[in-house]
Write a protein that binds this DNA or RNA. Structure first.
Length: 192
DNA sequence: CTTTGGATTGTCT
DNA sequence: GACAATCCAAAGA
């Protein structure tokens, strides 16, 4: 991995389709105020995608999805949890579903009230609780504090499958994971 | 190990 | 008024 990823590098990386970015994010290291780890699971949401919040156009809630690439889109799910996305091309975003915790373990354990490293960040809501993400982090650039994102810069062994928790476009294999990782939110079906 | 149902609130129809 | 890009605890296999 490169020692540092510049803001321009990030914009170039994210100014692509969510499917490409979602794949390439696996293996990156993401931190919020020094707390975080390795991205091991993502999902892609595209503009023409009936499962995407952007599908029916811009609203106050999803406006960050139509903003510049390389910023966050944070929303509340089921009235209870926060979910974190990285914005790609307009109307496209990648949902960050799971991290392998590597930094700030004690902070995450305190926030989650749970010590099992496999479950600290295994799911979008759990990840946001562990990292302290809420609506105040919506629409903020990934290149500045409190965020830190270091791309892996190397190919990673990937698995993919259908996205979780949606009712439309169920068959698209736009969920991506690090092959063999035990930190994903739900195991991927073995490749045929 | 897997399955099931309840919690809870912003957003859109 | 319905529903949602989820999580957890409890119960069954």
């Amino acid at each position: 991995m490169t020692p540092e990823t510049t803001p321009a590098d990030l914009v170039a990386f994210f100014d692509r389709s969510a499917v490409e970015v979602g794949r390439d994010l696996i293996g990156a290291t993401f931190c919020v105020d020094g707390v975080g780890g390795i991205v091991v699971e993502t999902e892609a949401y595209e503009p023409d995608d009936p499962a995407s919040h952007s599908f029916r156009g811009e609203t106050p809630r999803n406006r960050a999805m139509f903003g510049p690439p390389a910023q966050t889109y944070v929303y509340r799910s089921y009235g209870i949890h926060w979910c974190l996305n990285f914005v790609c091309r307009p109307g496209s975003a990648v949902l960050i579903r799971a991290l392998q915790p590597t930094m700030g373990l004690e902070t995450m354990i305190a926030r989650r009230g749970l010590a099992d490293p496999r479950r600290l960040c295994a799911g979008p809501g759990r990840l946001c609780e562990a990292l302290g993400i809420d609506l105040s982090h919506d629409g903020r650039p990934l290149s500045t504090n409190p965020f830190a994102l270091a791309l892996s810069g190397l190919p990673q062994p990937l698995v993919s499958g259908p996205r979780i928790g949606i009712s439309r476009a169920v068959d698209l294999p736009w969920r991506f994971g690090l092959a063999g990782s035990r930190y994903v939110s739900k195991t991927f079906r073995q490749p045929a």
